[in-house]
Amino acid sequence: MPKKPNLAAALNDASKKPNRSQVSKKIEPLENSDNDANDKIPPSRRGKKAITVHFDPAACKQLKQLAMDEETSIQALMTEALNDLFEKYGKNPIA
C-alpha cells in the first residue's frame, strides 16, 4: 500500500513564497494600459467619481419607486437632489 502524503507538509510547502530565482517570468508593464482601462468604462461614467452613501432600506425602496413613477433614473434624481443642495448653500449647481 502506498504511503499517504503528509497534509501538514503539503500545506507548509504551499504557503512558502518562491525565491526570486525561482520566478522565471518577468512582468512587463502593458503599453497604453490607461487606454485599455478607459475602454471598459462606459462613456457616461468617464471622468466621473462615484459617491457611495448608506441609507435605510425604506429610503432606497422609496427612491427606486420615485424613479419608476417619474420614468427617470436614480442617477437623474440624485443629480437633481445634489444640485438643489448646492443651490441651498449658495454653491454652483454642477452635478
Rank of each mutant, 00 (worst) to 15 (best):
Glu31Cys: 04
Ser73Met: 08
Ala10Thr: 09
Ala76Thr: 03
Asp36Ile: 15
Ser21Val: 10
Ser44Asn: 14
Ala9Cys: 01
Ile51Phe: 10
Ile74Cys: 08
Glu70Cys: 00
Pro57Ser: 03
Glu31Leu: 11
Ala76His: 03
Arg45Val: 04
Leu7Gln: 08
Gln65His: 11
Arg46Leu: 05
Asp34His: 07
Thr72His: 00
Glu71Gln: 15
Gln65Leu: 09
Gly90Phe: 02
Pro43Thr: 06
Ser21Ile: 07
Thr72Gly: 03
Lys17Met: 13
Ala10Ser: 08
Asp39Tyr: 13
Ile94Ala: 11
Asp39Trp: 10
Glu28Met: 15
Val23Tyr: 01
Ile94Gly: 09
Lys17Cys: 09
Asp56Met: 05
Ala10Cys: 06
Glu71Asn: 15
Asp36Val: 14
Lys3His: 07
Leu7Met: 09
Lys91Cys: 11
Gln65Lys: 14
Leu82His: 02
Pro18Asp: 00
Asp39Ile: 10
Ser21Trp: 06
Lys26Ala: 10
Gln62Pro: 04
Ile41Lys: 00
Gly90Pro: 02
Lys91Trp: 12
Ala95Asp: 04
Leu11Pro: 03
Pro42Trp: 00
Ser15Cys: 08
Gly47Pro: 00
Gln75Pro: 06
Asp39Gln: 15
Arg46Gly: 02
Gly47His: 03
Ala76Ser: 09
Pro5Cys: 07
Arg45Tyr: 07
Ile27His: 13
Asn6Leu: 11
Ser33Trp: 12
Glu80Val: 07
Gln65Thr: 13
Phe55Cys: 08
Ala10Tyr: 08
Arg45Gly: 02
Asp34Phe: 05
Leu82Ile: 12
Asn19Thr: 13
Gly47Cys: 05
Glu80Met: 07
Met78Gln: 01
Lys64Cys: 02
Asn19Phe: 10
Pro5Ile: 11
Ile94Val: 12
Gln22Lys: 10
Leu77Gly: 00
Gln75Gly: 13
Arg45Lys: 13
Ala58Leu: 10
Glu31Gln: 11
Gln65Glu: 14
Lys64Phe: 01
Lys61Ile: 11
Val23Asp: 00
Lys40Arg: 14
Asn92Arg: 09
Leu7Gly: 05
Leu77Asp: 02
Gly90Leu: 01
Ile27Cys: 09
Ser15Trp: 06
Ser15Phe: 07
Asp69His: 06
Lys40Asp: 13
Glu87Pro: 00
Glu31Tyr: 07
Pro5Lys: 14
Ile27Ala: 14
Lys49Pro: 05
Lys88Ala: 11
Lys91Val: 10
Val53Tyr: 07
Lys25Gly: 04
